[in-house]
Amino acid sequence: MPVMPGAEAYHHAGGQIGVLLCHGFTGSPQSLRPWGEYLAAAGITVSLPRLPGHGTTWQEMSHTRWEDWYAELDKSLADLRGACAEVFVMGLSLGGCMALRLAEVHGDRISGLVIVNPSVTNDVPLLRLAPLLRFVIASVPGVAGDIKKEGATELGYPRTPVKAAATLPRLWALTQSELSKITQPVLVFHSPQDHVVKPASVRILREKLTGGNLNVVELADSYHVATLDNDADQIFAGSLEFIKTNASVPLQRD
């Protein structure tokens, strides 16, 4: 299946600190590519994989589920850990949820998390019916492109495959149930004006991550896809400072 131009995976071989970037549901690496390039310019090894079923067609995505997307990230994490002394994981939206899940599973083998407008709970009541709806309707209107910045666009699907969406509640429930396992530092960038993910997700993180390892920073001038929005520079610089603060090995420029 041909990949949409601009939706390709991105990888950069840098120093001994690695970052795994996780894009969101129905999106593509394009939404995080500027972030990845910023970190690469700082000498960091970057892996930004394209999740199965993404960056092609929503019809192809309908044949995938959250376990497929997570498995791709897990493999990329293993590759990064083989090449780097230390690894951080960062993500947008559902990519933020999968970053949290990776931290729950891998523990201190991940040094820290930076997540932007993470999705960890069901914001759409109709989704509870998705297991049944998938037999009746193939797709619903998409959620891509929630960006305030004029002229900025996200390369995502105009339709959301119901069959794939029906697998999300299991991921959310599993991630929520084991949030207490996360002891690494977690930096959350949160847009109060988010038309895709409701405030409930950040509220859950505040309730569950009570070990003093959570820091939430509000983005005053961005919508959901904040990595392409007006506050993108704040996210990029903040993530680099987070790495410098929490890494146990020095940052090496190329």
Score class of each variant (00 low, 15 high):
residue 2 P to F: 11
residue 7 A to K: 09
residue 11 H to E: 14
residue 17 I to N: 09
residue 28 S to G: 04
residue 33 R to A: 07
residue 42 A to W: 13
residue 43 G to D: 15
residue 44 I to M: 06
residue 46 V to P: 00
residue 48 L to F: 15
residue 57 T to H: 08
residue 57 T to W: 08
residue 58 W to P: 07
residue 60 E to D: 04
residue 61 M to G: 05
residue 63 H to S: 14
residue 65 R to T: 05
residue 65 R to G: 07
residue 74 D to H: 02
residue 76 S to Y: 09
residue 76 S to G: 13
residue 77 L to I: 00
residue 79 D to G: 03
residue 83 A to I: 08
residue 86 E to C: 01
residue 88 F to G: 00
residue 95 G to L: 11
residue 101 R to W: 04
residue 102 L to W: 10
residue 111 S to T: 12
residue 112 G to P: 10
residue 114 V to C: 05
residue 117 N to V: 09
residue 119 S to Y: 09
residue 125 P to F: 13
residue 125 P to V: 12
residue 128 R to H: 06
residue 129 L to A: 15
residue 129 L to I: 11
residue 133 L to S: 11
residue 133 L to W: 13
residue 134 R to Y: 05
residue 143 V to K: 04
residue 143 V to D: 02
residue 147 I to S: 03
residue 151 G to T: 00
residue 153 T to K: 15
residue 156 G to L: 06
residue 166 A to N: 07
residue 167 T to P: 08
residue 170 R to K: 13
residue 170 R to S: 08
residue 180 S to P: 04
residue 181 K to Q: 09
residue 190 H to S: 10
residue 192 P to L: 06
residue 195 H to G: 01
residue 205 L to W: 00
residue 210 T to P: 05
residue 212 G to H: 02
residue 213 N to T: 12
residue 219 L to R: 06
residue 220 A to Y: 06
residue 225 V to T: 14
residue 229 D to Y: 13
residue 231 D to P: 12
residue 232 A to H: 14
residue 233 D to S: 15
residue 237 A to C: 00
residue 246 N to A: 09
residue 247 A to R: 12
residue 248 S to Q: 13
residue 249 V to W: 09
residue 253 R to P: 02
residue 253 R to A: 04
residue 253 R to D: 04
residue 253 R to T: 11
